[in-house]
């Protein structure tokens, strides 16, 4: 039986089968995932994590595919974590981000993994963050995280990605939409994709105005940038890569790199704790719960009682 360490070693030697398997372990077993991550923490992280967010249909996947092409030419190893929503009703998921990136499927320097949200608020699950650690460990130096693209709930991505791209398209509304709080405050680089479409100039000037008005947008020496692209026609991709690299240089020089790594690891800890607790809670409600609990305690104390029981069980059996 191969342990996590052997799997990591194989993955480090370029065995994609072992890497694919490791990622499944991160998704399936909190205990084994903890083991895997403990090994990876031995190494100083050195990957550049790029978060890509923006509304559904703005062309994120196609844009990422073009970025992969560029980064491949510059001899980078690229990993993509493509997050798609899980249905709250059936708990199934249709993961289709890959469709736009399949031209890279057989490339030895590219690894693409689809990740369903599995009901996690904010869209970024424990396994999504843990995957970043593993990709970094086995030598992928550009790790691109594609979010599900419901803007305001994507804040978790901001906390852990080194460079955040916000993708938008022409024709989504007027200047007030662009000024709304949330999405316009998180980006390092704003990408107006599909700029071959009608109304691109107008949307561009709205965005320019929105960005200018945000004093908040200036994050310690980096002024958010705005760029027009058309992923479909390949316009503006070179310039976008230049901007991303310019931002990365800033991240390295300003000390933001390690700050983000610290936050990423804290987020990982928080998400795993949440995952373990929630699964025990759910198990409790499915079979273990005392149906008379609300007769014995008031609502608040019933909750506290429940939490105590779960924690005691955890300590006793180790999860």
């Amino acid at each position: 039986m191969e342990g996590s360490r052997e799997l990591l070693r194989s993955a480090l030697n370029g065995d994609k089968r072992a890497l694919g398997r490791l990622l499944t372990i991160l998704e399936s077993s909190p205990k084994k995932a903890g083991e895997v991550i403990t090994y990876t923490l031995d190494k100083e992280p050195d990957a550049h994590v790029i978060g890509v967010t923006g509304i559904p249909g703005s062309g994120k996947s196609t844009l990422i595919s073009k970025l992969i092409t560029q980064y491949k030419e510059d001899n980078h190893k690229i990993a993509v974590i493509a997050i798609d929503p899980t249905s709250p009703l059936s708990r199934g998921a249709l993961l289709g981000d890959r469709i736009r990136m399949q031209e890279h499927a057989t490339d030895p320097s590219v690894f693409i993994r689809s990740v369903p949200t599995r009901g996690v608020k904010g869209g970024l699950s424990f396994s999504g963050v843990a995957m970043i650690e593993v990709f970094d460990y086995v030598g992928y130096d550009k790790v691109i995280v594609e979010s599900i693209g419901v803007g305001q709930t994507d804040i978790d991505i901001m906390n852990i990605a080194h460079t955040i791209l916000v993708v938008t398209t022409p024709g989504l509304g007027d200047d007030i939409q662009a000024l709304k709080a949330g999405i316009m405050e998180i980006g390092d680089i704003y990408v107006l994709n599909k700029s071959d479409k009608e109304g691109a100039e107008k949307t561009y000037s709205y965005l320019e105005f929105a960005l200018e008005s945000y004093e908040l947008g200036v994050k310690r020496g980096w002024t958010p940038k705005l760029i027009k692209t058309s992923a479909l026609f390949g316009w503006g991709i070179d310039q976008l890569v230049d901007l991303i690299e310019e931002h990365y240089k800033y991240v390295l020089e300003s000390g933001l790199y390690n700050e983000k790594i610290g936050r990423r690891r804290m987020l990982m800890l928080k998400l795993l704790s949440e995952k373990i607790f929630m699964s025990l809670l759910e198990e409790y409600f499915n079979k273990g719960i005392d149906r008379d609990i609300l007769r014995k305690y008031d609502l608040y104390n019933a909750s506290i009682h429940l939490i105590r029981e779960i924690v005691e069980k955890l300590i006793k059996y180790g999860g």
Partner: peptide, 25 residues
């Protein structure tokens, strides 16, 4: 998907190489 599975759909005109690599990753 509606039965509760996680389904990866790769789109049309795939080569056997692409399908196998996708299954591995």
């Amino acid at each position: 998907k509606d039965a509760g599975m996680e389904v990866i759909y790769t789109g049309i005109r795939q080569t056997p190489e692409q399908v196998v690599e996708t299954a591995i990753q």
